[in-house]
């Protein structure tokens, strides 16, 4: 939080109990006749709070606290401690500057968190979203394709698309996205996708991001392009970043641009942000202490 304070992020505290229990993984219960949910995500909780209380959004917001999610496995924790920040702006022309500011904050995380090193994976949600929209893929089929790529599974993608007229094009594109996480070589491969022209802008965006961020990288951080990062595709609309510690099982921080959240709620605001998963960080410190600086 100190890091965020020092960069002008103002802490807001959304309620732990939300009256919009729409998320299927939320923990829900009745308060008299009203179905309510424990906060499952800060971004959504903050968005609703901002809509109620601010005619103009505060530009820089930070948060810290618990979120609760139902888990697939009984042994997984339902309570997670998260810290994060959001940058909301009115002019889309500010997006690039905002994205670089947030990326720089994420790049400083390994040092702030005491990690010896980290890997920052850069992706872009539109790399899959736009071809799926262009092919007018039905929602159920889109979900299956996203699920397959989330598993980095070309054969599952082929199974999902089996009878679709655009199967060949989409599979060739999926193969391009599934190159091993790399730098500029992956970006060059994207130029050979059947959707290369459609994704010209996104490709240029990623190229600019690599060019802008590479010189700013601290010594203990590697920047990698991960074209198949399709996690959270329903939420993210633009570039995404995920911070990994080498050998860690789960990402320690994740964020990106989500320009459809506020318009969907009736406000023409643009937004990006990231969240640090403190519970995972503490687990990692316990199980893999060698990944952390000793002092």
């Amino acid at each position: 939080m100190e890091m965020m304070d020092s960069h002008g992020y103002q802490e807001l505290r959304p309620s732990l109990v939300l009256r919009e229990p729409v998320e299927e993984h939320s923990i829900r219960f009745f308060d008299e006749d009203h179905l309510v949910a424990l906060r499952w995500d800060f971004t959504v909780a903050l968005a609703r709070m901002l809509l109620r209380r601010f005619p103009e959004p505060p530009r820089r917001i930070s948060y810290a606290g618990d979120v609760f999610r139902r888990t697939a496995q009984s042994w997984e924790p339902m309570e997670h401690v998260e810290v994060g920040c959001e940058h909301i702006h009115l002019d889309p022309a500010d997006s690039r500057e905002v994205d670089v500011e947030l990326a720089c904050l994420m790049m400083s995380l390994p040092s702030v968190l005491g990690l010896k090193g980290g890997i920052l994976a850069l992706g872009h949600a539109a790399l899959l979203r736009r071809p799926m929209d262009a092919e007018a893929l039905p929602k159920a089929l889109s979900s299956r394709l996203v699920w397959a790529l989330e598993r980095r599974s070309l054969h599952r993608a082929a199974e999902a698309l089996a009878d679709h007229p655009a199967a060949e094009r989409l599979l060739a594109h999926a193969e391009t996205l599934l190159v091993e996480p790399d730098g500029e070589a992956s970006l060059a491969a994207l130029g050979h996708s059947p959707y290369a022209i459609l994704l010209e802008e996104e490709r240029a965006h990623l190229q600019r991001a690599l060019t802008a961020l590479t010189p700013l990288l601290p010594d203990n951080l590697i920047l990698r392009l991960d074209l198949a990062d399709v996690k959270g595709l329903d939420f993210y609309t633009g570039p995404t970043l995920r911070l990994w510690a080498p050998g860690a099982q789960q990402e320690l921080a994740a964020g990106g641009r989500y320009d459809s959240l506020f318009p969907d709620l009736g406000r023409p605001w643009y937004a990006a942000g990231f969240c640090v998963r403190l519970t995972r960080l503490l687990d990692l410190a316990e199980t893999r202490p060698e990944l952390f600086e000793t002092e």
Partner: peptide, 18 residues
């Protein structure tokens, strides 16, 4: 039969696992 990989190992250490 499918070849599966740990998400963390594959994405955080592709140089070793891939």
């Amino acid at each position: 039969a499918r070849l599966v990989a740990s998400r963390g190992a594959y994405l955080s250490e592709p140089g070793r696992i891939a």
